[in-house]
Amino acid sequence: MLVEWRDDLNIGMLEIDIQHKLLFDKFNAFVSAYQSNQDQDEIMRMFWFLEAYAVTHFKEEEKLMQQVRYPDFVGHREKHLAFIDQINRLKERLKVEGITQNMVSTMTGFITSWLIEHISTMDRAIGRFVNNSPLTPLP
Rank of each mutant, 00 (worst) to 15 (best):
residue 122 M to D: 07
residue 73 F to T: 15
residue 96 V to D: 03
residue 131 N to D: 01
residue 101 Q to N: 12
residue 72 D to R: 13
residue 71 P to D: 02
residue 45 R to F: 06
residue 112 T to N: 08
residue 78 E to M: 10
residue 59 K to N: 15
residue 50 L to I: 01
residue 136 T to P: 01
residue 62 E to A: 10
residue 95 K to C: 03
residue 127 G to M: 04
residue 130 V to M: 07
residue 106 T to A: 09
residue 79 K to E: 14
residue 127 G to V: 08
residue 95 K to I: 06
residue 101 Q to F: 11
residue 98 G to P: 11
residue 86 Q to G: 11
residue 43 I to E: 01
residue 52 A to K: 10
residue 130 V to P: 03
residue 99 I to S: 10
residue 61 E to P: 05
residue 92 E to C: 09
residue 74 V to Q: 15
residue 47 F to Y: 11
residue 126 I to V: 09
residue 91 K to S: 08
residue 108 T to C: 14
residue 121 T to K: 08
residue 97 E to V: 10
residue 76 H to Q: 11
residue 103 M to H: 10
residue 65 M to T: 12
residue 56 T to K: 12
residue 102 N to T: 12
residue 110 F to I: 06
residue 70 Y to E: 02
residue 47 F to N: 08
residue 108 T to S: 15
residue 125 A to E: 02
residue 45 R to I: 03
residue 45 R to N: 08
residue 73 F to I: 13
residue 81 L to T: 13
residue 124 R to G: 01
residue 73 F to Q: 11
residue 67 Q to A: 13
residue 46 M to N: 11
residue 64 L to W: 12
residue 135 L to I: 09
residue 59 K to R: 13
residue 58 F to Q: 03
residue 122 M to W: 06
residue 135 L to Q: 11
residue 94 L to W: 05
residue 74 V to G: 14
residue 134 P to Y: 01
residue 48 W to R: 04
residue 57 H to S: 09
residue 107 M to Y: 08
residue 127 G to P: 05
residue 117 E to P: 00
residue 123 D to F: 05
residue 40 Q to D: 11
residue 71 P to W: 03
residue 64 L to E: 13
residue 89 R to T: 13
residue 56 T to M: 14
residue 72 D to K: 14
residue 131 N to K: 01
residue 80 H to M: 04
residue 56 T to Q: 10
residue 70 Y to A: 02
residue 110 F to T: 06
residue 54 A to F: 09
residue 46 M to C: 14
residue 71 P to N: 02
residue 50 L to Y: 02
residue 79 K to V: 10
residue 90 L to K: 07
residue 92 E to R: 13
residue 132 N to C: 00
residue 135 L to S: 14
residue 129 F to V: 07
residue 130 V to G: 02
residue 100 T to W: 03
residue 120 S to A: 02
residue 71 P to C: 04
residue 88 N to M: 03
residue 122 M to P: 02
residue 105 S to H: 07
residue 76 H to K: 09
residue 56 T to F: 15
residue 124 R to C: 02
residue 103 M to Y: 12
residue 67 Q to K: 13
residue 116 I to A: 03
residue 62 E to Q: 14
residue 110 F to P: 05
residue 80 H to A: 06
residue 59 K to T: 15
residue 104 V to L: 00
residue 40 Q to S: 11
residue 67 Q to W: 13
residue 61 E to H: 02
residue 120 S to Q: 00
residue 110 F to M: 07
residue 41 D to A: 15
residue 42 E to M: 02
residue 42 E to Q: 07
residue 86 Q to F: 15
residue 78 E to C: 06
residue 115 L to N: 00
residue 119 I to S: 02
residue 116 I to Q: 04
residue 104 V to K: 00
residue 104 V to N: 00
residue 73 F to Y: 15
residue 54 A to H: 10
residue 84 I to C: 15
residue 78 E to V: 06
residue 58 F to E: 07
residue 135 L to T: 12
residue 62 E to T: 09
residue 66 Q to S: 04
residue 121 T to Q: 06
residue 131 N to Y: 00
residue 109 G to N: 10
residue 135 L to H: 12
residue 53 Y to E: 05
residue 101 Q to Y: 10
residue 69 R to S: 10
residue 59 K to F: 14
residue 57 H to W: 13
residue 133 S to Q: 04
residue 94 L to N: 03
residue 111 I to V: 12
residue 44 M to C: 06
residue 86 Q to M: 11
residue 96 V to P: 00
residue 103 M to R: 08
residue 77 R to N: 15
residue 117 E to V: 00
residue 49 F to D: 08
residue 56 T to P: 05
residue 136 T to H: 03
residue 114 W to T: 01
residue 110 F to W: 08
